[in-house]
């Protein structure tokens, strides 16, 4: 691969732009196709469109029957964590290793310190303000971990509206019951509220903050991959 082509592909990935690298497996010739490019005249147009949707790499044949390998690159899933709490300190590095773009939002400056979190993930501000600048979307998971309604309620509602692929909220059943009452009062339908996972995380008997982080990350991955299977 040309180094310049690799640099272009990596720049697209950094900018969260989907791209497909097309490799002719006989000649080794390569080209890069970006999502949004006009594919009307592309010999692999239909295949490329399909692959942008499925996000799966694989071999296709061109009109001449020659094998072309498509390396499909779609934006990595995002994880937005509400609360710069103890669980989040374990969750951030694990989620980054698993390939997620991670953001931690907490307006409480005692929690949201650069000593406790890497600055690249930390947004020490109200969720309302942070999410205005970087809205939630369907490639994003949201984990609300403060169990403070003043901080958690707004992003939970925003995540449900944005169609986040996972929405989880920390708190006892009693805490969650009260949360549901508040959200219902705010006009969120029951069918929508049932999308909130509470208690949060896989049921693995997690006890420590780090174990709870594993349970949360497991639930997020399950939502991402198992839903994708049935899509």
């Amino acid at each position: 691969m040309d180094l310049s082509l690799l640099e272009t592909l990596n720049a697209d990935r950094d900018a969260r732009r989907a791209a497909i690298l097309v490799t002719d497996l006989e000649t080794g010739a390569q080209r890069l196709v970006r999502q949004g490019d006009d594919l009307a005249d592309d010999p692999l147009g239909e295949d490329l469109k399909k692959r942008f949707r499925s996000a799966k790499s694989g071999i296709v044949e061109d009109a001449a029957g020659k094998a072309q390998f498509l390396t499909v690159s779609v934006p990595p899933p995002r994880l937005v964590v509400i609360g710069a709490v103890h669980i989040s300190q374990a969750l951030v590095p694990m989620a980054e290793v698993a390939g997620f773009d991670v953001t931690v939002i907490d307006p409480r400056t005692a929690f949201a310190t650069p000593e406790r979190f890497p600055e690249r993930v930390l947004k020490p501000d109200w969720p309302q303000d942070v999410l205005k600048a970087a809205p939630l979307d369907g490639y994003t998971a949201l984990a609300a971990l403060t169990h403070d309604p003043k901080i958690d309620d707004y992003p939970i509602q925003a995540a449900l509206e944005a169609g986040c692929f996972y929405v989880g909220a920390l708190g006892s059943r009693k805490t969650h019951g009260k949360r549901l009452d508040r959200l219902k009062e705010a006009g969120v339908a029951d069918t929508v509220l049932s999308r909130i996972q509470a208690p949060i995380g896989l049921d693995i008997g997690a006890a420590s903050p780090a174990e709870i982080a594993v349970a949360v990350l497991g639930a997020v991955i399950a939502a991402l991959r198992k839903e994708a299977e049935t899509r």
Partner: peptide
């Protein structure tokens, strides 16, 4: 972009 994902990303 010195995070864990980049550190382990073969293309990077």
């Amino acid at each position: 972009q010195d995070n864990e994902a980049v550190r382990l990303d073969p293309l990077k």
